[in-house]
Design a protein around this nucleic acid. Structure first.
Length: 567
DNA sequence: CACGGCTGCCAC
DNA sequence: AAACGTGGCAGCCGTG
């Protein structure tokens, strides 16, 4: 059963039951409640639904415009849901997918549904009412029609993969809201200790902590051209040149090449300053409360389908501060990392037999060495990164011919994606998320160059642009499909964990996600069971996406008290 | 003085 | 000073 949630301008919510088994998605029951009564209604409906099955259509599926606007208030009322259909996220996929490109849904002009979501809901129980009236039921039916009409390049129906993508994307939205709700367990005392040790005690506002101040003075003294502010690139570069250093920028990797007594303290200063500004006391005050770090995740925020984050820098949590991520007393963190995810994804997508064989090994790069294609793990790694990113220089470029000979099908797949991009065509992930078209400027420059005219320099600039977009599309298919695997993994794991507790935070729950890595916060006595679930769901995600593929999606797992002990 | 672009560094 | 993909974020700095 699909249950459509339609907020009304008068502060009520119309809840419609839609029978998804019947054509046209007829409404079979309607109920109207005050918005304050919605959590109770959802709780009751979830409790009454048949026990969670593993079939994608089992039980209830809540249909709403936007999980991020609706679900947090339900969670605050201690209400969880099993499944949803996030109309906004699904719309983005369906409007852009090559599989639905020939449907009226994809070619319809932009509407209020396409406008960016309004910022996070203000204080108060609910802010469901969108700025412009949206009709979720109608949108659902339009999406369902487009999905049914999806066809592959060969013209044959191709809706099942797309359906899986929509379900996984929506499940991801639930996971994101639940993770923000639960938060990452954060030890403020440990964080402050770490900051004090590295930077000096917390200073008064507007002042540098003592050790950072001392380091700045050390840099000035070593340069010997007066007191400088190392945070100012302009001032720093000028001073370095004045002191006779051959620097052309203030980047660490370039400074490392220079032999001068000011360099060591300067690099240390940069490291300390970065810690201070990115994850210092101000960050702690802003993002950590009640022993929890609560970042805002943005599912589907990256074109490839990866998540983005909005505030808190969740997806760039430096290793330097991970000792402050600490399980509650009596609880532990189960940290699992998909090993060589993208190479495995490429092996499975392309059906390359030799690469798939390598992809059965616990360490895929070692597996590639074992096939005899390359001599060392390092060569395998650089070669694969070059293949997936479009590298041509250095170790990556040198390894490419060998990799191509050993794994021809895999390389053919990424090469085809690159060629398509260079010609301004779109490419798609395994489940059917498609890349955007290049910008109008890109396309007009491309066609103008093709029509000749233009200087040699102009033509070369256009070719460089084309190659650049080719590297994007080359990477898109792999990165995007890896994101799909990760979504399926999390969605499956979430439902398994759910069975272990009554509420989100009452038992094992997902606490953090980073592209190919997840963290579960769990009571210590359930850790072994959680590890098993994490492993099983990784395997299952591989099966759902790549039925019959011999590639194994291996994990490294760790059960730890502090995140810093995970690897 | 506000704001947007740039620089540099963090994550995968 | 880039090369070889996707991002976020803080602080600097030039501009209107």
């Amino acid at each position: 059963m699909l249950v459509v949630v339609c907020p009304q301008p008068d502060g009520t919510v119309v809840v419609q039951d839609v029978d998804r088994a019947q054509p046209g998605l007829p409404v079979v029951a309607t109920e109207t409640v005050e918005v304050e009564a919605l959590p109770a209604l959802v709780r009751a409906r979830e409790a009454a639904a048949s026990p969670t099955g593993t079939a994608p259509d089992a039980g209830l599926r809540w249909v709403w415009a936007d999980t991020a606007a609706t679900y947090p208030a339900l969670l605050d009322a201690d209400v969880r849901v099993d499944r949803c259909w996030d109309l906004r996220l699904c719309r983005t996929i369906l409007r852009g997918s090559a599989l639905t490109a020939r449907t009226p849904y994809a070619s319809a002009p932009r509407s209020a549904w396409d406008e960016a979501r309004t910022a996070a809901a203000p204080e108060g129980l609910f802010d469901l009412t969108p700025p412009v009236a949206l009709d979720p039921l109608r949108e659902l039916r339009d999406q369902q029609r487009a999905l049914t009409a999806a066809v592959g390049e060969d013209g044959r129906p191709e809706s099942s993969r797309l359906w899986l993508l929509l379900a996984a994307e929506s499940a991801g939205a639930l996971v994101a809201a639940e993770m923000t709700f639960a938060g990452v367990p954060w030890d403020v005392v440990e964080h402050d200790r770490l900051l004090s040790e590295l930077l000096g005690p917390r200073p008064a506002p507007g002042f540098r902590p003592a050790l950072l101040e001392a380091k700045a003075a050390q840099v000035s003294a070593a340069l010997g051209v007066g007191e400088i502010n190392p945070d100012s690139p302009v001032e720093l570069l000028r001073s370095m040149r004045l002191a006779g250093l051959p620097a052309t920028s203030t980047r660490s990797w370039e400074l490392q090449q220079i032999d001068h007594p000011a360099i060591a303290p300067l690099l240390e200063y940069k490291k300390m300053s970065r810690l201070m500004t990115a994850n210092g006391w101000h960050w702690l005050d802003t993002w950590v409360a009640g022993g929890r770090f609560r970042p805002v995740y943005v599912p589907g925020g990256v074109v490839t389908g990866r998540w983005a984050s909005d505030g808190g820098g969740a997806l760039q949590l430096p290793h330097q501060v991970r000792s402050a991520v600490r399980a509650d007393p009596g609880w532990v963190l189960v940290v699992a990392d998909a090993a060589q995810l993208e190479p495995r994804i490429l092996a499975a997508m392309s059906g390359d037999e030799a690469m798939a064989t390598a992809g059965q090994a616990a360490d895929m790069y070692e597996g590639m060495v074992a096939t005899g294609a390359v001599a060392t793990r390092q060569q395998a790694k650089f070669g694969m990164l070059g293949a997936m990113y479009g590298g041509t220089q250095g170790e990556s470029g040198r390894m490419l011919p060998r990799i191509t000979r050993a794994f021809p099908q895999a390389l053919a797949l990424v090469e085809a994606a690159a060629r398509a991009g260079e010609q301004g065509e779109i490419v798609s992930t395994w489940l059917g998320r498609s890349s955007p078209l290049p910008s109008a400027e890109w396309r007009s420059a491309h066609s103008a160059a093709g029509a000749e005219g233009g200087s040699a320099a102009e033509q070369e600039a256009v070719r460089a642009q084309a190659r650049s977009w080719g590297r994007f599309t080359r990477n898109f298919v792999v990165q995007g499909t890896a994101a799909e695997w990760a979504l399926c993994w999390m969605a499956l794991l979430r439902l398994r964990l759910r069975a272990l507790s009554e509420t989100v935070t009452g038992g094992p729950h997902l606490a953090f996600f980073l592209h190919d890595e997840i963290m579960v916060h769990t009571p210590a006595d359930l850790a072994d069971q959680v590890v098993e679930m994490v492993q099983e769901t990784a395997h299952e995600a591989g099966r759902i996406l790549f039925e019959g593929s011999p590639v194994e999606f291996r994990l490294t797992t760790a059960v730890v008290t502090a995140y810093s002990d995970a690897k």
